[in-house]
Amino acid sequence: MKIVKAGVVLALGILASAGVASSALAADGPGTEKSESYRFVVVPKVVHPWFDKVNQGAQQAAAAIKAQTGSDVEIQYSAPQSANVAQQNEIIERAISTRPDGIIVDLLDPSGNRTVLQEAQEQGIPITLFDSINPEGMNLTTVGSDFCEQAEMAANRLIELLDGEGKVAIMMGVPTAPNHAERARCAQAVFDAHDGIEVVATGVDNDDINTAQQQASAIMQANPDLDGWVASDAAGPVGIGQAIKEADKVGKVQLVGLDDLSQMLVLIKEGVADSSSASRPTMQGYWSVISMWQLATGAITPNHIDTGNIMITPDNVDSFME
């Protein structure tokens, strides 16, 4: 099974060669500025376990840079209390006023965040994006994986499990979250392309495990012959898994989850869920910091660093557990 996307390897390669090049060639070329310490602010969408993993990766990168270069890297993690563009903008603004060496952001909405990002640039503070796309007319380095691909992986896996035939349901996350919406759309597209598969229901869980459980229970009540589930956010499959257990339908209803929350991993170990299509938050945090640091040293960073998606199955689930 393909675990790491080629893009990541490529990015590693670019970085490695950049390092080699700078030491071998011009002493004042791109990426040669050195500072004793850096302070980067990480602004996720909201307080959420998925972003804790991003933070973890960011801290790992900081430690790595310290170990390799001796420069101190401080990671300041500053999360909005709710997933709200205005609130996230305020967090970014406050980050700007502490004048950090860089801000790493997961945009809640590219168009809504645009003004603040411009403000940061006017104030001379570099920005790296992760898990999101560039606002119109901006060209910032983005780090992340392909949401559509992630959802397609899950949908295809479910079709495989059902031998190409059956009734399935999709759990939407937060309807206002573009990445959740995109995943739902891509999964739907995959199902639509298979004649044997019928999407009989769509739930909305608002990225909340309890809501997901209630919605999933209700949908399974209404559709007793449901065969399988996919989800569009990290909380969704955890709630669905609990609902499946409660309804005593383990094995009868298939679940292909999303992302790698610890409860998700447990569900896979228990056999409630078959597998989970995961983006790699730790890696996103790690590479965001590496890229940010490179930018701060004067290097030119790539348009996009693809951290890839991975299928977590019972075979490899142990390597994700801590």
């Binding site: 209390q81 709710s82 997933a83 709200n84 563009v85 205005a86 609130q87 903008n89 809640l108 909405d109 168009s111 809504g112 645009r114 003004t115 206002t176």
Partner: peptide, 12 residues
Amino acid sequence: RLGSAQPSIGDS
């Protein structure tokens, strides 16, 4: 201010 009409305006 945002240059776009966000459905989430006012949540907080």
